[in-house]
Design a protein around this nucleic acid. Structure first.
Length: 472
RNA sequence: GCCCCCAUCGUCUAGUGGCCUAGGACGCUGGCCUCUCACGCCGGAAACAGGGGUUCGAGUCCCCUUGGGGGCGCCA
């Protein structure tokens, strides 16, 4: 049997982090088994669904690298099929019309609450004769659920979960306006789409019981269920709009790499021994439901950040330059030339191991393509004191004479210079002023590497700029 | 309130009855490296929620308590 999983978000907002992980697990499970990963947009709630949200979901999944098979299914377009399923239920006596109005229902709810009784629809229309139906009221269709015994779910993550049927009531399948409810639509769609494994957040665990009953009533095979624990905010509270539940686009904007997000999300609730850095290929090979934990986990930015640093350091130079180019151009208000881009590619290995996100990478790379004269930070300017300028004057003269412009040659020359100064000075006494002159800051990759990447001409010009600035 | 789920360092987790004087990672921290900042390397502090069982033996199995979470809509 081919494995078919699905991700079924409702387009009422961005693709948030919890949804992203659910999608990832579904995707990994399908890819691991060589099966299919389908996408279904649960847009039956017309009032709350928007086109923008649908686009945001597509964008988020694409950015994460989670490709789905076939076209996304719009649940809304399948209402006829949903109604059809209810017709068969009505015909076989497994569903019935209920004429209670929403008002009556909420009254029943209120009084149950007042008496301290657990609320549950009492099924008064369950066995009533249709002739008693009041006129002028459009009924809802409810399932005729079993009233005794128990419903058992053998969840791939949560294990065997059981509930007494008398704690469940007859849920609504079709609203009085004829539209299907979520419970109906999920079951019909999952069945029609051939979904074999329903992997979703455990906030749906109790829904699974009712859905199970629906599958049975429809005489359909019940898929495997796997309810994965939710992700909580850093403070342990549920992730909500105002509680750290950002859209994946926000993570992209903060400079996180998709590979890092995948790795981080994967380790939130799933483990493979002591493995921490797990490539996507490896994840596909290893992923299984047995090793999904059952406890909710907290979102930890520090760890995500650390992982991001790892993927940045091992990231492809060209790819990274492509990532930061738009940021650099925006800041400089001027496009980068091909020469500058290739310079950045050469600079990347020195830069990427110092950044923990793409934003920082762009920030630290800017000085390479900044137009002269550089703007100095306060700390950089303080490095360029009188003593430093004396050293720079001597060095710039020597640098101008150099025939080979290589890091080790430059370093050897400067080391000799500091050693032979009288009295000998520390390398830092010269390296820091050089750094300030060349980068405008006090932090950069190794300064002799910087000189080589910048090239002799630019290096000399920047040092001379610093000397002139100090004189004025 | 009722129903369901969960519970190992601050955080993510390994652990499937003896290999656990509980391992790894992030974070924190001492040191090394060093032209800055990082990276890297070496070291440290840090956990089985509590109580009962079962067993020769329990972090691992059972029960209770406590604590968290989720669900109880003509939302999804």
């Amino acid at each position: 049997m081919t494995v078919v999983t699905r991700f079924a978000p409702s387009p009422t907002g961005f693709l948030h982090i919890g949804g992203a992980r659910t999608a990832l697990f579904n995707w990994l499970f399908a890819r691991h088994h060589g099966g299919q990963f389908l996408l279904r947009i649960e847009d039956t709630d017309r009032a709350r669904s928007t086109e923008d949200a649908v686009e945001a979901i597509y964008d988020g999944l694409k950015w994460l690298g989670l490709d789905w098979d076939g076209d996304a299914v719009s649940q809304f377009t399948r209402v006829d099929r949903h109604r059809e399923a209810v017709e068969t239920l009505l015909a076989s006596g497994k569903a019935y019309r209920c004429y209670c109005t929403p008002e009556e229902l909420s009254e029943m709810r209120e009084s149950a609450k007042a008496d301290g009784r657990p609320w549950r629809y009492d099924g008064i229309w369950r066995d009533r004769d249709p002739s008693e139906a009041p006129v002028g009221i459009n009924p809802v269709i409810r399932i005729k659920a079993p009233q005794d015994g128990e419903t058992i779910i053998r969840d791939k993550v949560q294990g065997t979960v059981r509930v007494a049927n008398d704690t469940l009531d007859d849920m609504v399948l079709l609203r009085s306006d004829g539209t299907p409810t979520y419970m109906l639509a999920v079951v019909v769609d999952d069945h029609d789409m051939g979904v074999t494994h329903v992997i979703r957040g455990d906030d749906h665990l109790t829904n699974a019981f009712r859905q199970y009953q629906l599958y049975v009533a429809l005489d359909w095979d019940v898929p495997e269920f796997a309810h994965i624990p939710l992700i909580h905010g850093p403070d342990g509270a549920k992730m909500s709009k105002r509680h750290g539940a950002l859209g994946v686009d926000a993570y992209r904007d903060q400079g996180y790499l998709p590979a890092a997000m995948r790795n981080y999300l994967l380790r939130l609730g799933w483990a493979h021994g002591d493995e921490e850095i797990i490539s996507t290929e490896q994840a596909i090979e290893w992923f299984d439901l047995d090793n999904v934990g059952r406890a909710a986990s907290r979102f930890d930015f520090a760890k995500l950040s650390n992982l991001n640093g790892h993927y940045l350091r091992s990231g492809d130079n060209e790819m990274l330059v492509a990532e930061i180019t738009p940021m650099l151009e925006e800041r400089r208000h001027e496009a980068l030339s091909e020469g500058e881009k290739s310079m950045l590619v050469r600079a990347m290995s020195g830069l990427k191991e110092r950044a923990k996100n793409v934003l920082e990478l762009a920030e630290s790379a800017y000085f390479y393509i900044a137009r002269r004269p550089l703007v100095f930070t306060d700390k950089a300017r303080s490095q360029l004191d009188n003593e430093a300028i004396v050293h720079l004057r001597t060095l710039v003269a020597a640098f101008g004479q150099m025939m080979t412009w290589e890091a080790d040659v430059l370093e050897a020359h400067v080391r000799t210079y500091v050693d032979e100064s009288d009295p000998p000075i520390k390398l830092g006494k010269v390296a820091q002023p050089l750094r300030a002159a060349l980068s405008g800051t006090t932090v950069s990759p190794p300064i002799f590497d910087v000189m080589v990447i910048l090239g002799q001409q630019e290096t000399l010009a920047r040092i001379n700029d610093a000397i002139s600035a100090a004189n004025s």
